[in-house]
Design a protein around this nucleic acid. Structure first.
Lengths: 340, 340
DNA sequence: CTTCGGATTGCATACGTTTTCATCAACGCT
DNA sequence: AGCGTTGATGAAAACGTATGCAATCCGAAG
């Protein structure tokens, strides 16, 4: 009914109590049963809800979390956002979403923006930030955790899957499958995930005395991955297996192998991805891939972040979550492996 | 350096001016060149940035937009979010993101939450809301625009593609292609988009004196669409064309036809989708589909919303944006159509 | 009946900004 | 020189809430 915004003072007047009483009822402080009843009744009648911004001013806690995401092409991120949002909402937090592209200077200003909104914490997903910025966060007492990307600086938390181990598992799997010429279309080498997966892969190969046929940076994008596939298959000694740095690129590789090149998978080439996004299970792709456990990663992210918010003295953590290889139809399966 | 939060008063003291002067410099009000210089210098030294929440309290404008999204499985929504975020950021707005699932009572409370954060406006994407709630928004003077979903209530804005017309176009296309038994796996009939596309489709069929072989509600989800595909193809008179209510379901239909059923597309069955998400252009699917122009829809959404924010007297609008049929390989193309 | 203690309550202040208002200096014009 | 005009500036109020502090109330214990 009322056009104007209704404040705690309006409620107080209608209920015949002081403004502080109203505040106490809604902030859960102690109040007599009688007041609570009167206040609730008046509030319901006026449709009153406390102003979160005013509340944030006084308490110093906005209950908002800044979420900085580079892009959403890769299905992994929408999924992660969905889960993260649910987890945070369940704990009474809200998400201030920022899309950052991948320009470093853009990030800088955007993060500053976030801070002016007094967010209680920041999650960056697949985004690299300058150490200057992390220090600034630390100085302002804003906890920061990097999701799915590590960084060397000491003072910050990160949650990733066990990328090195994952890369190694893939190498072992492909070697066990009897592949002779194994290539790698790597994740973007500017990101720790891409580098770590590659490192693990190379270690796994080396441990068996093997070397990759070739390694090409696919930049985590579709087009470069397609080009890389062509480049690999045009060689005189084309690979009989390709490990691709993430599922998003692996789909492009599969499309190219089967479509433009008319090859059979896994008959001519085995393909293994990384992530296990839902689409990897779709019949058209049926992609063998190393699963990143989104749920557990999100859970850890939220836990770490809120932990640091509630207890600022808590030290930053770097958590790695192990994932397992999901066997599907895009890669030859070694004897006996499917029983595992 | 400083652990504490730095306020305009700190800057004022360092610059040797009053707090109001600092405020004026940062809010763009008039000030002498001398003061501006002093204030800027002091602010830079302290790393001062105005507190957006305090600013919001006083101006009554938080420069935050609430974005309520049901789910992100369908690639159309991540894409839309990405665009919308960019457009809003460019105009100095920020996004408060809420995931709402599809439970009606969940929406209710979540929207209330949004309002306590004093958002300047709300965009709902693919979400239905009670008329009670729209009234409450109106009463609080919070503009609301529904993205990709219409609703009959008079007082609210919505941006959709021209769904009826789109459905009709698909019908005409499939009829022109000489298909004899045309079926429809419809979008969720609880949503206006699903109903409108179906209505247009039926109108188009009727205009040619035809009737659909069958119509099944696919709920906009993958599983129901797969079941519907099986149900259709098990008939004694299976369809030779299927119009699917959106791309997300169409991918499931294609997977099922080609995979489990071993059929050829478009040899045995033509398939047409709706949305034209990027994935529709991928080689594996190569889906003929009716394009929803995301960019223009987002542009219109932002325009409408900000228009209403700046001028509250502006009337709500229902905007429909026409899309065109994108011809690809999943449906037989009528003689001469590809030249269009 | 008095006194003590704990639970409630109201008053006033604080949070960090924008904005109105009055003051003041400077300046051009008659 | 006097006067009005303009532009800059500081003091103070306001936004809507939480909370420390003092006052008050109530019942129970003595």
């Amino acid at each position: 009914m009322s056009d104007a915004r209704v404040t705690s003072l309006d409620v107080a007047r209608l209920a015949g109590v002081s403004q502080s009483a109203v505040s106490r009822v809604f902030s859960g402080a102690s109040a007599s049963a009688a007041t609570i009843k009167k206040v609730r009744a008046a509030a319901d009648r006026l449709g009153y809800r406390p102003n979160s911004l005013a509340r944030a001013m006084i308490t110093g806690k906005s209950r908002m979390i800044g979420l900085v995401v580079a892009y959403l092409d890769n299905q992994f991120y929408p999924l992660a956002i969905e889960r993260m949002s649910a987890a945070l909402q369940a704990r009474g937090y809200h998400i201030l979403l920022i899309m950052a592209g991948n320009s470093t200077e853009g990030i800088e200003s955007v993060m500053q923006d976030l801070m002016t909104y007094q967010v209680d914490g920041i999650v960056t997903a697949s985004v690299a930030i300058s150490s200057d910025l992390t220090e600034r966060c630390a100085a302002m007492g804003i906890p920061l955790v990097m999701f799915n990307r590590g960084q060397d600086g000491a003072g910050l938390s990160s949650i990733t899957s066990a990328n090195v181990e994952g890369g190694r598992k893939v190498a072992e799997f492909l070697i066990a499958g009897g592949h002779e010429r194994i290539a790698h279309i790597a994740g973007w080498q500017g990101a720790s995930t891409g580098r770590d997966r590659m490192r693990g892969f190379l270690e796994g190969m080396a441990a068996a005395g093997r070397e990759p046929l070739a390694v090409i940076d696919g930049m985590y994008h579709r087009e470069p991955a397609i080009e890389a596939t062509h480049a690999l298959m045009e060689r005189s000694d084309p690979p009989d297996a390709i490990f691709v740095g993430n599922d998003h690129m692996a789909f492009a590789v599969l499309d190219t192998l089967r479509g433009a090149l008319g090859l059979s998978v896994p008959g001519d080439v085995s393909v293994v991805g990384y992530d296990d996004v839902p689409m990897a299970a779709w019949e058209s792709y049926d992609l063998t891939t190393l699963r990143q456990p989104v749920n557990r990663m999100v859970e850890a992210t939220v836990e770490t972040l809120l932990g640091q918010i509630e207890d600022p003295a808590r030290l930053p953590q770097k958590i790695e979550i192990a994932g397992s290889l999901i066997l599907r139809g895009s890669a030859r399966i070694p004897e006996g492996w499917d029983i595992t």
